[in-house]
Design a protein around this nucleic acid. Sequence first.
DNA 1: ATACAAATTGATTGCGCTAACATTTCCTCG
DNA 2: CGAGGAAATGTTAGCGCAATCAATTTGTAT
Lengths: 343, 343
Amino acid sequence: MDDSSTRPRSSRSTGSARLTDVARVAGVAPMTVSRALNRPELVSETTRLRVQRAVLETGYVPNRVAGALASSRSRLVALLVPTVAHSLFAEVVQTVMGVLAPQGYQVLLGLTGYTPEQEETILETVLSRRPDGIVLTGCRHSTLTRQRLQSASVPLVEIWDMSDDPLDMLVGFSHEAVGRAVAEHLLARGYRRFGLISADDSRARFRVAGFVAGLEDAGEGEYQLREVGTPSSMPWGRDKSAELLDSHSLDAIVCSSDILALGVLAEAQSRDLSVPGQLAIMGFGDSSYAAASFPALSTVRIDGAAIGLRAAEHLLQRMAQPTFERAARTLDVGFEIVDRDTT
Amino acid sequence: MDDSSTRPRSSRSTGSARLTDVARVAGVAPMTVSRALNRPELVSETTRLRVQRAVLETGYVPNRVAGALASSRSRLVALLVPTVAHSLFAEVVQTVMGVLAPQGYQVLLGLTGYTPEQEETILETVLSRRPDGIVLTGCRHSTLTRQRLQSASVPLVEIWDMSDDPLDMLVGFSHEAVGRAVAEHLLARGYRRFGLISADDSRARFRVAGFVAGLEDAGEGEYQLREVGTPSSMPWGRDKSAELLDSHSLDAIVCSSDILALGVLAEAQSRDLSVPGQLAIMGFGDSSYAAASFPALSTVRIDGAAIGLRAAEHLLQRMAQPTFERAARTLDVGFEIVDRDTT
DNA sequence: ATACAAATTGATTGCGCTAACATTTCCTCG
DNA sequence: CGAGGAAATGTTAGCGCAATCAATTTGTAT
């Protein structure tokens, strides 16, 4: 009999169909419904179909909140990036989600800005959701952040950076190496007097440090540094380059992002400086528009998709085998200097 | 007494500190700890401090999964966009999160691609988390999607589109109106023979339809349409414009995104066509690089930040007052034709 | 047929928290 | 100084699901 008319409900219930409702309609035990939905291979074909029909009839939508509590598996991955308003991080988000979604993981997105304080706050709220895995941008975290991550013992991938002692897994590239490579590249092309325009975030600073180290190693070149606030934008690039050009005689300006470089380019054009004849310009990121600017922007290409892909894959592997391989795994995806028409 | 040495734990427990552990250390009831953390105004100053100290001592991180189950409030907002690899949607994500995070809401991100099927799948998994609110891109949903949204009765904002019968709240602009406005604008400038390069997503198609309607209303102009796949890219723009220019004599090419327009621009330059003298080009979106291309790209500006902001605000209001004002609220944020140097 | 293992289904219990109500403590005022 | 109410705290009982183990059915070999 199917007397589904009366069902007692406490005042705290949400009112929507539950597992037990489906079970009653299908004429099986709640546990069997749970299995039919989550581990169909444990259930006979006939009951599976009956359950399926009952689900449709009741309009049942599983409550994964309850499921997560009961099983201590949230099927949630936290993804923490500074921003999505930057195409490189957007690419990472896009790729990570593309890999995780088919595996049944949902993504809890967190924007940390560029400050450790915000990272700390957001990490706490994120951990309270008990994610099965975390992808975290950067390797420099506050002490509290490191403590929390360690005691949470959640599979973790740090991305977008290199470190000698990652907390768990790591997929990225060395910002210092980028800076050095750019320095060597530009020195080789004969540029000597550099302006540096850098965002005030820690990774951009590492690239600057690498650049300076590159000059020192070569024993050549001099530089002027200007920092800009976040988010980087064309006006920042334009203003700071104007400042630099007004006060110094420069061969080249190196920027911590393509968008800043575009601002520099605009400033150069407004001064009728030939690029790269009178002023060379170097960006960072190889954004989609870098190739389309005129002249086409020289820059450093970072493969955000590769980082996202590998990070997600590592995470999946670790989540599937939580105990296996606790040794840190580090992957350097490298970078590439793209020599277009501004250097 | 503080005999916190032995605490019985079932095999199903996760092992980390719970509310009861904090309560024992603080010497109060679990419920008091819950209140001290979630509704501190209900708790005396002294106990609040004792609880705070106990939290630090135990390293307690609240389990919001359990909290959500018990209270039927997840403090989760689902945000569904086609992609974040497009700066306009990234801007929406950025803004929505910027508004919601300070209010204690976390964001569950879903990428729907541009297909109703994916939207359907993702919506189901999203609903299983029992979000307190949903921001959904677009107004055209499958029947199942509409049913699910209605029976879930979750505060909902549809964005990025206009509709006469929104499911709940709506913040966007009319794609048809964009198409018409572009048609009128270009006709007024004397262009008559148009190429249209459009992505194969429904909203881009509406803009095309609007454009065509604009031509028909004016009784002037002719057009050739080419559709491209997603994601849009410079090569798509370049290839399709080459195809169009090879077979037709055109005054202007209208694209469904700036990145396509950049491809058209590249093709025009490779053919030594003067822009806009021999070929005018129109983009869509006013991406950051539109102003930086050479010549600077004419386009249609959409204020993604405004959409995200208003959508989040509407959602917050509705979530705070679930029963109040069930009447649909619609907001048209409009758009603006940005006339730069390619038209 | 009978015994035994494998496959399938069911009953119980608890994940960690908060709603709802009960109780105690504190304060105010006649 | 005790009544009465407000403020603070405690107790109980789930939220909806899956881990666990028990019970049943099915299949198979002798």
